[in-house]
Simulated scan of single mutants.
Amino acid sequence: MTPNIRDATVDDIPAITEIYNEDVLTTTVNWNAATVDADDRRAWFAGRATAGLPVLVAVDDVDAVLGYATYGDFRTFSGYRHTVEHSVYVRGEARGQGLGKALTLALIDRAREAGKHVMVAAIDADNAASISLHERLGFTHAGRLDQVGTKFGRWLDVIFLQLILDADGPGDAGRS
Rank of each mutant, 00 (worst) to 15 (best):
L163F: 07
V90E: 05
M119T: 06
G98M: 05
F74Q: 02
S132K: 11
A34I: 00
G96H: 03
A8Q: 02
G100Y: 03
G96L: 04
M119E: 11
V57W: 02
H141F: 13
R154Y: 02
L56C: 02
S78W: 14
R75A: 15
Q147R: 15
R112I: 15
A38V: 14
A34S: 04
D23G: 15
E18A: 15
Y89A: 07
V59R: 12
I16D: 00
L99N: 02
V36P: 00
A114K: 09
I13Y: 01
E135D: 11
D40P: 08
D39Q: 02
E18L: 14
L25R: 13
D23T: 13
A94E: 06
L107F: 08
T83Q: 04
N30H: 09
A128V: 09
L25G: 02
I123D: 07
V158H: 12
V120H: 00
I131Y: 06
R136F: 02
R136W: 04
L103D: 10
E85S: 12
R41C: 09
T70H: 11
A102G: 04
G138N: 08
I108R: 11
T35W: 00
L99H: 06
D157F: 03
L137F: 05
T70D: 12
G169F: 05
W31L: 15
V65N: 01
D146P: 11
T27F: 09
L56Q: 01
G149F: 08
R48A: 12
Y20S: 03
D73R: 11
V148F: 05
H141I: 02
G143S: 09
T28Q: 00
D12M: 05
E85K: 03
I5L: 07
F152S: 04
T27D: 08
L163S: 07
T150V: 08
T83V: 15
G149I: 11
A69G: 13
D146Y: 12
E85R: 06
H86E: 13
V84H: 03
A142I: 03
R144N: 14
